[in-house]
Every structure is written in structure tokens, then in C-alpha cells.
Amino acid sequence: MVEPTPAVPAAAAEPAARFTGFSLWYGTFQALYGVDLQVEAGRITSLIGPSGCGKSTLLRSVNRINERLGYVRTEGAVAVHGVDVYAAQNALVQVRKQVGMVFQRPNVLPLSIRDNVIFGHRLHSRGAGRTTRADEDAIVEGALRQVLLWDDVKDRLNRRAAGLSLEQQQKLCIARLLPVKPRLLLMDEPCSALDPKGTEAVEELIWELRGEYTILLVTHNMAQARRASESCVFMLLGKMIEHTPTDEMFVTPQRQETADYIEGRYG
């Protein structure tokens, strides 16, 4: 992505992500139908809907990881802070730098805790002068503090990351995104592999990151969407049905399909 111009006054209202008539096909199967959606900057937006409704596909369209499958075709546009991520001149690695992603199962790298956190920074800071050991320490500490993990791991930064609990691993996966200063965090059911205590801790963390980061959160857990998001998008069969503030969606849904889903009549 091109470095965005410094905040002009209008930028405050600019959505962090904007889908315009976005459709996507896996081979001949159409997974998304002309989605129009604006994700407000600095807020947590959750995507809900029954299995197969396209919420994960929509999320994965933002950092273009669907493309790896090879038989994916898209139409329409996805813009992150006004810049089209599918435009030919934009480098994929820059898109991935600006748009961090967290997966269902924590996918820590087979490195030490410290190396996991600093990994992205090392990738993207090459050529920008040397980072001293002290700078790296500061970056690691900052990121781990921000994900509320510092006190747990500060004495074992050089131990392997795979030895942490799942909850800690998932926090580490979030922490390692932060040093490269992404503009948008995509989370694909980040708590579904965790126990209730871990879920609570990670939800709390997501809530803490609100404001500083824009978060787009896919969840199949409606209670989680209700607890941990400010804005909620309901999807069904590849279409965006409704997008309202979370507290309105769960109290006064505007569309019949939304109401039926929330009340558990299907899904």
C-alpha cells in the first residue's frame, strides 16, 4: 500500500476498510454477492452469520490470502484507508504488513517468544538502518505489554513460543502484529480454540486494543459479538444483510432474517 497521506481533516470519517460491490468466486461457486460495507476506523466490528455465509471469506479478502488458492476470482473493490488492496501496483507484502491477521488456532512460529514478536519488525525494517538490541527489547516489551502478556513471559523470552498455553499463544500472535504498526487487524474466530477463561482474556485484550486499532472480528458466537464488538454485520448466503451498532442489532434488528438468526430459528 502507498503510505497514506498524513491525517487530513476528512480522514477522520474515512472508513478503515470499504467494500464496494465486492463479489468473490471459488471456481464456479459464488461465495460473496456484491457486498457493500464500510468498517469504521478505530472500532471493533464483528461479522456474524451461519456457517458458510461468507464471513470468513469476506475477512480473508482484505489481506488477499484467498488468492493463494489460485482459483479465486473477484469483482468490485476493497479499500483500506482509501487505497484499493487489489490495485495492480500495490505490493502484496505491503498489504499484509498493513493488515494483520489472527487465526482460529494460534499459529506461533517455531522460534523463541522474543523472536516471534520481533519477526515482523525484522522483515520490514531492513534497509531502514540497524535496530539495536536495546531498540528490539523495547519493541518486544511494548508489544507484549500491550497484549497483557509481558508479566507472564518476561522471564522466559528466549524459551520456545510453542510451550505457552493456547491463550498465551493467541496473545503472542496478536503481539507480533503490533510492531509493524498495522492499520487493520483481522481476527478469524480468535477464541474458538480457547477455553472460557482464555476466551475471556483474549476478548478483554481485543477490547483494550479498540481505538488504537481497527478490528474486524469473525465469530460464530453471538454472545461474543454482543460482548466484544461495537458494530455488527450480519451475513447470510454470501450477502451482507444488516450492519448496525451491536446493541441495536441484538435488541431491534431491522431485517426479519437477522431477527430469526439471533433468536436461533436457524444457523
Partner: peptide
């Protein structure tokens, strides 16, 4: 998963 984790960080 290790490869995916790397790619998704822009490696």
C-alpha cells in the same frame, strides 16, 4: 501453518 503465519505477516 508456519508458512502461512509468515506470509500473513508480509514475508
Amino acid at each position: 501453518a508456519f508458512r502461512e503465519a509468515c506470509w500473513n505477516m508480509g514475508a
